[in-house]
Nucleic acid binder design. Structure first.
Lengths: 236, 236
DNA sequence: TAGTGGTCTAGACCACAAG
DNA sequence: TTGTGGTCTAGACCACTAC
């Protein structure tokens, strides 16, 4: 683990230990540098990390303060940061509806940037959050990049397998979101009624080297999912 | 403008001028450093900015590459970065439905962290994107922080006024999103039918010093709004 | 193994906030 | 004015990729 990541983790522990609340002040920079025995740049980087993560905010000329969201029961759709493991406070289960190895469907080729006829794993899962239906997920993995998958893996966390077992480095993703009315087929899976509202998120995942390897479409159950995003900076 | 921001802007211009496409390689780090005459740290910071903004991605041991989303017509709900001015490619108009100075409503006090009885500007607007109804926005500004607003300002960009005229420094925000069925009152304003799907986003905006100054609830027109988010890192 | 991006340091100097 | 966070530099060294 890198020094600045380690430092960030230690600062989080410090906040936890001292039970600091929203708006509470941390020790000043120089103090933190001495306390954690790192250079100013490293400390700055650690703090920047925590700032993006939404853990603190820094005010020049004033100090470093704790930032917290006060609402519970919201899912972090994506943290402004990134590598934060979300949903840890929730119990996530999956039920696999289908699992196949098929030629890449026409309409998905452009999303995955795959060659015509290339094979993909096509997976359909219902995901549960704390016992409730959270979403229907349909995902497609390029076999060129993910050579092997089986039903057992797919019942667990696929991404953990990709990183741990296959050693793939997941880089970045493009997400496209829209709201609409549930089609009949999806409604059945979510145990809702056709025409009910739904948030649909299409995501294209890339490796760190930029190659797309996974395209997924997630349709969320509107009664069992709400999201929080901690943003930094202005965006109109 | 800071040097690393300036550098980032120049690199964007470089990409533009050379008409670089998704996956195209930029000059190597050392070359960029020489070319733009900055230190390695500064260049790294500029590149980090562009990476968070979704303009490039960097691969250790390999190079720096251009990243682009290929879908058009999507609104950037919030960039993973932040200060990127969104919607610039769209024509945004506002119609003010109501504009009042009132005591802070009960249910909003906790969101704004305001004192009981404190006065707030309450504004209701319909916002149009390229001539279509995009959303209904209800927002509340604390008069303690925003001493003056009028109908004319509110018809334009409020945030621009806050930053330019009042010199306020907008820091960070917490957003809460959920999907549901349109209530009758809102449906009318959006020219939709009660029960239609809707994305609702509540946002609490803070100054850089951490004080909340604006609470807003935006309900999006599901047929005229879809969003793109460029994320970095993993998030399940 | 060569090339490329990433981390880390010490220290000078700058910019903003609060009293 | 003082204290505090932010920027910038030069350079050493590390870690990954591709050949």
């Amino acid at each position: 683990m890198l020094k600045y990541q380690q430092t960030a983790t230690e600062i989080e522990a410090y906040i936890e230990q001292h039970a600091l609340q929203q708006g509470d002040k941390l020790p000043v920079l120089d103090q933190l540098i001495r306390q954690f025995a790192v250079s100013k740049t490293t400390m700055t980087k650690a703090l920047e990390l925590l700032e993006r993560k939404g853990t603190i905010f820094q005010v020049r000329g004033s100090g470093i303060f704790v930032r917290k969201t006060n609402r519970k029961g919201y899912i972090e759709l994506f943290s402004t940061q990134g590598f934060k493991q979300n949903l840890v406070e929730h119990d996530i289960q999956s039920k696999v509806l289908s699992f196949e190895l098929i030629p890449c469907p026409e309409e998905i080729i452009e999303n995955l940037g795959s060659a015509p006829g290339e094979m993909v794993y096509a997976i359909k899962r219902i995901r549960y959050i704390d016992g409730n239906i959270m979403c229907l997920e349909e995902s497609y993995y390029r076999q060129t990049i993910v050579p092997y998958l089986n039903r057992e893996i797919v019942e667990q966390s696929i991404f953990e397998y990709l990183e741990m077992a296959l050693g793939l480095n997941i880089g970045f993703s493009d997400m496209y979101m829209h709201v609409g009315k549930l089609p009949d087929a999806v409604a059945t899976h979510l145990e809702l009624t056709a025409g009910d509202p739904a948030l649909t998120v299409e995501t294209i995942f890339h490796l760190t080297n930029g190659r797309p390897f996974d395209y997924s479409v997630i349709t969320y159950h509107y009664e069992h999912s709400q999201f929080v995003v901690q943003a930094n900076g202005l965006y109109l």
